[in-house]
Amino acid sequence: MRLTHLGHSCLLVEMADRRLLIDPGNFSAGFEDLGRLDAILVTHNHPDHFDPERGPSLVRAHADTPVHTDPLTAETLAEQGLRAVPTREGEDFAVGDVTVTPVGALHAFNHVAMPQIPNVGLVLRAAGEPSLFHPGDAYDAEPGEVDVLAHPLNAPWAASRDSIAFVGRIRPRTVVPIHDALLSDRGHAMYAGHIEKFAGVDGLTVRMVADGESVQL
């Protein structure tokens, strides 16, 4: 598996000879220039996960690429004449030899004035590859055993204690921090260090992947 971090929560996942793009948001860069994509996946309809301008343009530019999104984003795209398959927990789908398992249903609670919109995390599995869990913006889904956690490191809805507890519950072998656009380098290192020190997962590795860089797992 090869992961390319395109900023914030956007990942290009290359596994089992497939290229899957997750959460092309407005804090992310470079996703328009990736060439072939085998799937475009979106966890929820906030602009930092699906850019309201560049996202639909990306879908139009990849007219033959399957698009799977949370139900609200699918509705929003349909209003623009664009087709997306709504993802729902319990409804697995395949992208070549990659099985995608949707998990969870709602965005984490932010504030009483902000409605909880749909958020569907994604677990990617393929024979001979590490498994990956991208939770979107929630810590409550149950993905089962996973090797790599794309971990939302910082968010208005997340306390550090909840972030650490989430990693401790999922117990991945590797954490790749995402949802980090609001952090300075020092803040990023501090939050990641807290996870390594306090999550209580033996042998845990935190792999920092800077914007635009890739890691082989």
Score class of each variant (00 low, 15 high):
A105I: 07
D70W: 10
S28W: 05
T43V: 05
V146Q: 00
G128I: 03
V59D: 07
R36L: 11
D48T: 12
D51A: 00
L72E: 13
P130V: 07
D48W: 13
I22A: 08
H62S: 12
A138W: 02
G96Y: 05
D92W: 00
D38S: 10
L106P: 01
F109I: 12
Y139T: 15
F166P: 01
P152F: 13
R18Q: 10
A78P: 07
H194C: 10
I170P: 04
A199P: 01
D33W: 11
H44L: 02
F31I: 06
G203M: 12
H188P: 03
A192E: 10
H68Q: 03
F93A: 10
D97V: 02
I22G: 10
V67A: 06
A61D: 13
H111K: 06
I195Q: 12
V167W: 01
M208H: 11
D137T: 14
L183H: 13
R2Y: 00
V85P: 05
D211L: 08
H49N: 10
R88N: 09
K197P: 03
H46C: 01
S9W: 00
I170F: 03
W157Y: 12
G121D: 05
D33G: 09
D70T: 12
E32C: 09
P47T: 10
V42C: 10
D70G: 15
L6E: 09
P86Q: 03
M1H: 14
F93P: 06
P135Q: 02
G25E: 12
G7M: 11
M114H: 03
L12D: 13
H111L: 08
E32T: 13
R171Y: 02
G203N: 11
L72N: 03
V59H: 05
V146A: 05
L153H: 06
M1E: 01
T101S: 15
F133A: 03
N45F: 01
V98C: 06
R171W: 08
A94P: 00
L77V: 13
A39D: 06
H151R: 04
D185K: 11
E142K: 03
E196H: 00
L20S: 09
P24H: 04
L72K: 14
D211Q: 11
A84L: 07
H188W: 02
R60Q: 09
D180T: 10
F50C: 07
V146D: 04
L58N: 02
A108Y: 01
V85W: 08
D70I: 12
R161T: 15
